[in-house]
């Protein structure tokens, strides 16, 4: 019974990972690719880890249950931070938004600023 549950959870996770990878290829530039890469891959990994957590709980392996929970917390904390760092670095190094973009408030507010300041 629990095995079916584990298989369903891991399959959902793998489907999200696949969508994330497709998005990584289909999206037009770095910012839109990050959207697909952070969201779908984060939740996909979380689903796989929840599946592993259920599997470990069914086998009464407390050590593995706790480790998967710690992994989920750290993934939720670090994946968005990494995406933010990549997006900010991309903008600071002068990569423009996609040509069909609507607005760029960041560029407007930082106009005239050196694209690569020394202190960052």
């Amino acid at each position: 019974m629990s095995n079916i549950f584990v298989i369903i959870l891991v399959s959902i996770g793998l489907a999200f990972e696949l969508i994330g990878c497709i998005g990584l290829i289909r999206m037009p530039n770095v910012y839109n690719r990050l959207q697909a890469a952070t969201k779908c891959v984060t939740i996909g990994t979380c689903f796989i880890l929840v599946g592993l957590c259920v599997f470990a709980a069914a086998n009464s392996n407390i050590s593995l249950v706790l480790k998967t929970i710690v992994c989920i917390i750290f993934i939720l904390l670090t994946a968005p931070t990494a995406a933010h760092a990549i997006a900010r670095a991309a903008h600071k190094s002068g990569i423009p938004l996609w040509k069909r973009s609507e607005v760029d408030k960041y560029e407007i507010d930082h106009e005239g600023e050196d694209p690569l300041p020394d202190d960052s």
Binding site: M27, P28, N32, L97, W98, R100, S101, E102, D104, K105
Partner: peptide, 8 residues
């Protein structure tokens, strides 16, 4: 791909 990206 109905996207209209931008930074707000």
């Amino acid at each position: 791909m109905p996207i209209h990206p931008g930074i707000v």
